[in-house]
Nucleic acid binder design. Sequence first.
DNA 1: ATAACTGCAAACCGTTTGCAATAAG
DNA 2: CTTATTGCAAACGGTTTGCAGTTAT
Lengths: 137, 137
Amino acid sequence: MTDTILQRCEQKGLRMTSQRKIIAQVLEDAADHPDVEELYNRASKIDLTISIATVYRTVKLFDEAGILDKLEFGDGRARYEDAERGHHDHLIDINSGRVIEFMDSDIEKLQEKIAQKLGYKLMGHKLELYGIPLKKS
Amino acid sequence: MTDTILQRCEQKGLRMTSQRKIIAQVLEDAADHPDVEELYNRASKIDLTISIATVYRTVKLFDEAGILDKLEFGDGRARYEDAERGHHDHLIDINSGRVIEFMDSDIEKLQEKIAQKLGYKLMGHKLELYGIPLKKS
DNA sequence: ATAACTGCAAACCGTTTGCAATAAG
DNA sequence: CTTATTGCAAACGGTTTGCAGTTAT
């Protein structure tokens, strides 16, 4: 599972155009959660003829192929990250918009437990914890 | 804390126009999580001259006053619910968009624990668990 | 060769806003 | 009476889409 995004695209039989390769690389290099405009900015540094419509179409394609995860933090724009990054959840400062990644093994168990309690089997799951962090302790 | 939405509005000194009273009542009667268009539809049955702009302005006002909670489930439109409804979280079927309310005392503790572990004090919090419920068990 | 993909610009959809008219305190 | 609020319609911002031309396979 240490495949690159490009490799996973090829494994899924996606037609890899020069634009898609660039976007795949930009996502590969991203340690944060870029939105489409930010991806477009980074991709434009490599190929300045790329269009934002293509970025939109590509992230949608990659998301539907399970290569990316689409994150919606309630600020109006969608953000994306590599679906193969180690599983983690997000804490969002609703004032600043800052996103903090965290992992908690108890939460992993709880996610399954809650779904089960409700009579559902959880296939994919994503946890968002919105908070107002008042003070660093 | 068993005040009606209207009462809480008056306590906060909000000017209660006929439109705001209608919207407050519609929200009071809602057992679900209506979006603005749905609120507008329900309000229109009471006063058919009400405008959707007023509904947008009113829910924003009520949200900022802490009377409503704004919920963003990633489907592009905001939903609202009475902030004084007993604390609960939401499980969202990302295929159907269906929303299931649930409460889990372990989660309440965990929300605090995680924030603390990360060195933050959580003031308000909202938990969203996105899943793909495959089968009722 | 041909079906899929691209860039462009226009359309789209939920939401916000400027304005003149209206209503609450 | 004064200031906030309303309805309207236009603007907004992120996203999608129709189209004619281009590219991967």
